[in-house]
Design a protein around this nucleic acid. Structure first.
Length: 617
RNA sequence: GUCCUGAUAGCUCAAUGGAUAGAGCUCUAGCCUUCUAAGCUAGUGAUGAAGGUUCGAUUCCUUCUCGGGACACCA
């Protein structure tokens, strides 16, 4: 896409090149720190060095030269300020060109073709089954969803993926306690009385629980599952079971053998245990689907660990055959000391699989499913950096050619320490989400007592999602987020709803003026717009395309979040300073066009963050 | 011990090597017969320490201090 702003900057760079008699490119031009100083600035430091004069003197001389040429169709004035030459552009010309870009490109404004339509997979929904989904997961959910959109807007063909730990020690621990506790609901079989034989003595609860653990069949499993009320069939319930189990096992280590037994039975698809596993796993997966829907995440492909075990083990065998992996202390490892990555454990000494075993299989499975994949991204907690370096190195040694990249992000912690299931201070995503929605509903109902319930519900959801998502995205991915519920429930200042509010104010003006693009775009002379706030609004619009490219290249949604906030601030400045409907009549039509462009651009920016704008709020 | 990462205002965060380091929250004082006050205006206040590179350093390099994390059978 060609943007007027780039052409304008190039034009100014050319003018300065001519005057300074050296090559000045658009990259040499910066924005002055204060808008009053101008729109573009050139620092004379390089010239100072080559000419042996002070940069301030050169700036003065250069400014005189530029002004001598006079009458440029884009440049209004040139002034020297210290070592800088500041250029102020003709507001009407600039606004006019920028707005026409938006009117031309409509919804595709800001799109780039950097990705060249190549296929990239972004794996980001990686939470485990049989555990609660908490606010920490919310960060990677909204980050991943946003990065996927950023890549798309930059011309990539994106496949989003989820990968779930649905098997392994944590599942065994959870289900072991589940069955142990549920045993009491299964009636002990009553021995038929035979003549002359005493009835079997009923077992005590502990004996019975142990009996059930070893003799669990499909019938018993179904009976147990039926007793769980519908509202407890959640990840939260299973997560609680898991953390309780961990605690119980710490206090009673003699039960660990029972858990190992459970894990073996799960892996062997033992009939009774498989029934329990399938059903509880479904609770988690249903919950995931529900959360994805609520957050408007779009996951194209779902993988699960239980599917990768056999393949992964086969790959380890192959690695051993090729001499890449070798036995060490009973386990299988890949020696990566040469790359200074230590040793990479790919199989446990008891022969069972590890996370790494399954990840090797997953990487190849992705390529099998999408042979034209040119880039494979995994968005994951930064704490796994070393692990992923090891994994990628091993995959390269196995001949993988794709561009593998880990996109790291820091975790979410609470004000008084990290979340820990043991300490019971986990904030589940569901409860957090419900609280934000409740606050939004109260606020909305107070402001609009005349609105029907359905409208209040919908707008509240929009606001709550914006609050949650913006709060997670505005900060750099490499910084820990200190989660503060009170702040997360606030909609003032640098928040999602503040930005939505700015957008709805613009929409409200357009609605009141009964503005329609079919007719409105043909009316008015944009070059009449000269107010400072109008120019700054237009310049912010013009900044979106390059911010989209930067955010896409660096995989940083925070760049877009910052742009959106700036846009909201410029919008509120405009709203304060300029009257549209009751202002100067000849400026009404062009101002409406500026507003329409500002609104549609802001909607594009917010959409990249996964945020929608309600019609009113 | 080795490696990675962070340190900016009372709090939470910004700042492609450039001008007087910006916001938001909090606090104080104002602004709703004027396109939605989830807003706007004004005030207070900061680069962990010491060196180095550079015309110029919050940014790059070195050392130190203090956090966080990783470093073989968890994921």
């Amino acid at each position: 896409m060609n943007y007027a702003w780039d052409a304008i900057v190039n034009h100014v760079a050319r003018k300065i090149s001519e005057a300074a008699e050296i090559t000045v490119t658009s990259a040499d031009l910066v924005a002055p720190p204060k808008p009053e100083l101008g729109d573009l600035a050139f620092g004379c430091f390089v010239l100072a060095k080559s000419q042996g004069k002070s940069p301030a003197d050169i700036a003065v001389a250069l400014t005189e030269k530029l002004n001598a040429h006079t009458k440029d169709h884009l440049i209004a004035s040139v002034t020297a300020a210290g070592p800088y030459v500041n250029v102020t552009l003709k507001a009407g010309e600039v606004i006019s060109r920028i707005v026409q870009d938006v009117e031309r490109d409509k919804n595709s404004y800001g799109a780039s073709e950097d990705g060249e339509k190549k296929k990239v997979m972004l794996e980001y929904a990686n939470q485990n089954t049989h555990k609660e989904v908490h606010v920490g997961h919310a960060r990677v959910f909204v980050l991943g969803a946003s990065v996927a959109k950023l890549l798309q807007r930059n011309g990539w063909s994106v496949i989003t993926a989820g990968y779930h730990g649905d098997i392994g020690a944590h599942v065994a621990k959870c289900l072991w306690l589940f069955v142990r506790q549920a045993a009491s609901v299964i009636p002990q079989p009553v021995e038929k009385k035979k003549k002359g034989v005493e009835p079997a003595k009923p077992m005590n609860p502990d004996e019975w629980a142990q009996f059930v653990l070893t003799h669990l069949d499909a019938e018993m499993a179904k009976a147990m599952l039926e007793k769980i009320p519908a509202d407890e069939r959640t990840g939260k319930y299973l997560g609680k079971m898991y953390s309780e189990s961990t605690k119980v096992l710490e206090e009673n280590p003699e039960w660990k053998d029972e858990v190992s037994d459970v894990q073996r039975k799960l892996e062997a698809k033992d009939a009774g245990w498989d029934v329990i596993w399938q059903e509880t796993r479904r609770w988690s997966m249903d919950e995931f689907a529900h959360i994805y829907e609520d957050l408007r995440m779009n996951i194209d492909k779902t993988y699960v660990e239980s599917d990768m075990v056999a393949e992964g083990q086969a790959m380890v065998d192959e690695l051993v055959k090729k001499g890449v992996a070798k036995e060490s202390q009973g386990a299988m490892v890949v020696d990566l000391e040469a790359e200074k990555l230590g040793v990479f454990l790919v199989r446990k000494s008891d022969g069972t699989s590890l996370y790494s075993t399954k990840d090797l299989a997953l990487a190849f499975r992705k390529i099998k499913d999408y042979p034209d994949l040119s880039r494979s991204l995994v968005m994951i907690d930064l704490r796994q950096s070393l692990y992923f370096k090891q994994l990628f190195q091993t995959l390269k040694m196995m001949g993988m050619k794709q561009d593998l990249q880990m996109v790291g992000f820091e975790f979410v912690t609470l004000k008084n320490g990290a979340m820990s299931s043991r300490e019971g201070n986990i904030v589940t995503l569901q409860s957090f989400r419900d609280e934000v929605v409740a606050v939004a509903k109260t606020e909305t109902a107070t402001r609009h007592p005349d609105w029907p319930q359905g409208k209040i519900e919908h707008v509240s959801w929009c606001l709550a999602m914006a609050g949650i998502k913006y709060g997670m995205l505005k900060q750099d991915t490499e910084k820990i987020i200190v989660f503060d519920l009170e702040k997360a429930l606030s909609f003032d200042g640098d928040t999602g709803p503040y930005i939505q509010y700015a957008a709805t104010r613009l929409a409200s003006i357009l609605k009141k003026a009964d503005w329609k693009p079919e007719t409105g775009l043909k009316e008015g002379d944009l070059s009449l717009l000269k107010e400072q706030t109008e120019r700054r609004l237009a310049l912010q619009i013009a900044a979106l395309p390059r911010d989209i490219r930067r955010a896409g290249a660096e995989l940083k949604p925070s760049v877009i979040a910052q742009w959106c906030f700036g846009m909201a601030q410029r919008t509120n400045d405009f709203y304060r300073d300029v009257k549209v409907i009751d202002g100067e009549p000849e400026l009404k039509a062009p101002r409406l066009r500026l507003i329409a462009s500002a609104l549609s651009t802001l909607i594009i920016g917010l959409d990249l963050l996964g945020i929608t704008v309600p019609e009113e709020m």
